[in-house]
Amino acid sequence: MTSCHIAEEHIQKVAIFGGTHGNELTGVFLVKHWLENGAEIQRTGLEVKPFITNPRAVKKCTRYIDCDLNRIFDLENLGKKMSEDLPYEVRRAQEINHLFGPKDSEDSYDIIFDLHNTTSNMGCTLILEDSRNNFLIQMFHYIKTSLAPLPCYVYLIEHPSLKYATTRSIAKYPVGIEVGPQPQGVLRADILDQMRKMIKHALDFIHHFNEGKEFPPCAIEVYKIIEKVDYPRDENGEIAAIIHPNLQDQDWKPLHPGDPMFLTLDGKTIPLGGDCTVYPVFVNEAAYYEKKEAFAKTTKLTLNAKSIRCCLH
């Protein structure tokens, strides 16, 4: 018999989150649709729960009410004593943790798909938090293969000092899905179709896995975050240069030392320094102006996964 890495157990509980950011409308629209008619997301033997994560922000069509829901799922915020004085999103995070967690427990949901849009030209993107997770690498390989020839990129946010504390991190297997470009507060049919297909293929993978299909060893190309880059700023902290036209919409493309990065209003080009080629992502993302992030630098690498098969009882 072929030796293989056996994944822990079959997958039982899956959640699909929309509206973690209330103005990213593809996930909101799909989740609302699936709450009314969820036939397309159901798979035999699998509990799939669509869920609106930040209903107040969705109602106002804004990213958040008090603070970013997708950055506060750490033990400090989840452990705060519940009171009306807490920011709305912290209270909501505790409610979500109660419903789908608790985080880092045996009772937490197996998989959470968190649906997002970006204003950046990132196409279909899967966000991975753990480079050693054979199950998710296999799932992402399946999704990428199923979507081809449509490109699907994998963004690895594993980093020693950049801690995200994402909404989906309460699950055993957290999956971020990011599709763009799409303006905030807008629905685009092409973007919706791409996100819908990503979810379909992900659920198909889980179904095949649960039925005992063995997935042979595989490898995927990923883009691992190195650092986030702020806009150049003046002495008052105001933005002093904008994304250069040569960099705009060039997510995932190589940016070499000396290539144009920013452009000042008086026409001066600010190039990339250093001696390493990087791959920019979230270029000129609207939501990241407040976070002082013009783009993120990534490096390209390959992740390998062992063969996996479900432990059938």
Rank of each mutant, 00 (worst) to 15 (best):
residue 2 T to Q: 14
residue 2 T to K: 14
residue 2 T to E: 15
residue 4 C to Q: 15
residue 4 C to T: 14
residue 5 H to P: 15
residue 6 I to E: 15
residue 6 I to R: 14
residue 9 E to I: 02
residue 10 H to C: 13
residue 11 I to V: 10
residue 12 Q to S: 14
residue 14 V to H: 05
residue 15 A to R: 02
residue 15 A to W: 03
residue 16 I to R: 03
residue 17 F to D: 02
residue 22 G to K: 08
residue 25 L to Q: 14
residue 26 T to M: 03
residue 26 T to I: 03
residue 28 V to P: 15
residue 28 V to H: 15
residue 29 F to M: 14
residue 29 F to P: 03
residue 30 L to Q: 02
residue 30 L to H: 04
residue 31 V to M: 03
residue 34 W to K: 03
residue 34 W to M: 00
residue 36 E to D: 12
residue 40 E to I: 04
residue 42 Q to V: 08
residue 42 Q to M: 10
residue 43 R to C: 03
residue 43 R to I: 00
residue 44 T to S: 14
residue 44 T to W: 07
residue 47 E to H: 12
residue 47 E to S: 11
residue 49 K to C: 11
residue 49 K to Y: 09
residue 50 P to N: 01
residue 51 F to T: 05
residue 55 P to W: 09
residue 55 P to G: 08
residue 58 V to N: 03
residue 60 K to P: 06
residue 61 C to W: 08
residue 62 T to C: 13
residue 62 T to P: 02
residue 63 R to Y: 08
residue 63 R to W: 01
residue 64 Y to G: 06
residue 65 I to R: 05
residue 66 D to R: 02
residue 67 C to W: 09
residue 68 D to V: 01
residue 69 L to T: 06
residue 73 F to Q: 11
residue 73 F to C: 13
residue 73 F to I: 11
residue 74 D to Q: 12
residue 74 D to P: 11
residue 76 E to R: 12
residue 76 E to G: 13
residue 78 L to C: 10
residue 85 D to T: 13
residue 85 D to C: 13
residue 89 E to L: 01
residue 89 E to M: 01
residue 89 E to I: 02
residue 90 V to C: 12
residue 90 V to Q: 11
residue 91 R to G: 14
residue 93 A to W: 13
residue 96 I to V: 11
residue 96 I to M: 10
residue 97 N to L: 09
residue 97 N to I: 09
residue 100 F to S: 04
residue 101 G to L: 05
residue 103 K to W: 09
residue 103 K to Y: 10
residue 104 D to T: 12
residue 107 D to Q: 13
residue 108 S to V: 12
residue 110 D to T: 01
residue 110 D to K: 02
residue 111 I to P: 03
residue 111 I to F: 00
residue 112 I to V: 14
residue 113 F to L: 08
residue 113 F to K: 02
residue 114 D to K: 01
residue 114 D to Y: 07
residue 114 D to A: 01
residue 115 L to N: 05
residue 115 L to G: 04
residue 115 L to I: 07
residue 117 N to T: 15
residue 117 N to C: 11
residue 118 T to N: 08
residue 118 T to V: 11
residue 119 T to G: 05
residue 119 T to N: 10
residue 119 T to W: 04
residue 121 N to P: 02
residue 122 M to D: 05
residue 124 C to V: 07
residue 124 C to N: 08
residue 125 T to Q: 04
residue 126 L to Q: 04
residue 128 L to E: 03
residue 130 D to P: 05
residue 130 D to M: 05
residue 132 R to T: 15
residue 132 R to H: 14
residue 132 R to W: 01
residue 133 N to K: 00
residue 133 N to H: 05
residue 134 N to V: 07
residue 136 L to Y: 03
residue 137 I to T: 00
residue 139 M to K: 04
residue 143 I to H: 05
residue 143 I to N: 05
residue 145 T to A: 12
residue 145 T to M: 13
residue 145 T to S: 12
residue 146 S to M: 15
residue 147 L to W: 04
residue 147 L to R: 04
residue 148 A to M: 11
residue 150 L to M: 13
residue 150 L to F: 09
residue 151 P to A: 08
residue 151 P to F: 01
residue 152 C to R: 00
residue 152 C to G: 03
residue 155 Y to H: 13
residue 157 I to H: 15
residue 157 I to V: 15
residue 158 E to S: 06
residue 159 H to R: 13
residue 160 P to E: 14
residue 160 P to F: 07
residue 162 L to E: 15
residue 162 L to A: 15
residue 164 Y to H: 15
residue 166 T to D: 08
residue 169 S to M: 07
residue 171 A to H: 01
residue 172 K to H: 07
residue 172 K to Y: 00
residue 173 Y to M: 14
residue 177 I to L: 09
residue 177 I to R: 02
residue 178 E to L: 15
residue 179 V to L: 07
residue 180 G to E: 00
residue 180 G to F: 02
residue 181 P to G: 02
residue 182 Q to H: 05
residue 185 G to K: 04
residue 186 V to Y: 03
residue 187 L to E: 03
residue 190 D to E: 11
residue 190 D to R: 04
residue 191 I to R: 00
residue 192 L to A: 11
residue 194 Q to V: 08
residue 194 Q to Y: 12
residue 197 K to Q: 13
residue 197 K to P: 03
residue 197 K to A: 13
residue 199 I to C: 07
residue 199 I to T: 04
residue 200 K to H: 11
residue 200 K to M: 13
residue 201 H to A: 12
residue 201 H to W: 01
residue 203 L to A: 03
residue 203 L to C: 00
residue 204 D to T: 00
residue 204 D to K: 04
residue 204 D to C: 02
residue 205 F to K: 04
residue 206 I to L: 11
residue 207 H to T: 15
residue 207 H to M: 14
residue 207 H to P: 03
residue 208 H to L: 15
residue 208 H to I: 15
residue 209 F to W: 10
residue 209 F to A: 02
residue 211 E to A: 14
residue 211 E to N: 14
residue 211 E to C: 14
residue 211 E to T: 13
residue 214 E to M: 10
residue 215 F to Y: 10
residue 218 C to T: 07
residue 220 I to L: 14
residue 220 I to F: 00
residue 222 V to W: 03
residue 222 V to I: 02
residue 222 V to T: 07
residue 225 I to L: 15
residue 226 I to M: 12
residue 229 V to A: 06
residue 229 V to R: 03
residue 229 V to P: 03
residue 229 V to G: 05
residue 230 D to M: 14
residue 231 Y to Q: 01
residue 231 Y to V: 00
residue 233 R to W: 03
residue 233 R to N: 04
residue 233 R to G: 00
residue 234 D to A: 08
residue 235 E to H: 10
residue 236 N to Y: 10
residue 237 G to H: 06
residue 238 E to W: 00
residue 239 I to S: 00
residue 240 A to H: 09
residue 240 A to C: 15
residue 241 A to S: 06
residue 241 A to F: 04
residue 244 H to G: 05
residue 246 N to H: 11
residue 248 Q to H: 05
residue 249 D to H: 06
residue 251 D to R: 02
residue 253 K to N: 08
residue 253 K to G: 06
residue 256 H to V: 08
residue 260 P to I: 02
residue 261 M to F: 03
residue 262 F to S: 03
residue 263 L to Q: 10
residue 265 L to I: 10
residue 265 L to S: 09
residue 268 K to L: 08
residue 268 K to T: 10
residue 268 K to Y: 07
residue 270 I to R: 00
residue 270 I to Y: 02
residue 271 P to T: 14
residue 273 G to D: 15
residue 274 G to N: 03
residue 275 D to S: 10
residue 279 Y to W: 11
residue 283 V to F: 04
residue 286 A to M: 08
residue 287 A to W: 09
residue 287 A to M: 11
residue 288 Y to C: 15
residue 289 Y to S: 15
residue 289 Y to C: 14
residue 289 Y to L: 14
residue 291 K to L: 04
residue 294 A to L: 05
residue 295 F to K: 05
residue 296 A to L: 08
residue 296 A to T: 15
residue 299 T to E: 13
residue 300 K to Y: 00
residue 301 L to S: 07
residue 302 T to P: 02
residue 304 N to C: 13
residue 308 I to E: 01
residue 309 R to W: 06
residue 310 C to W: 08
residue 310 C to S: 15
residue 313 H to Q: 08
residue 313 H to F: 09
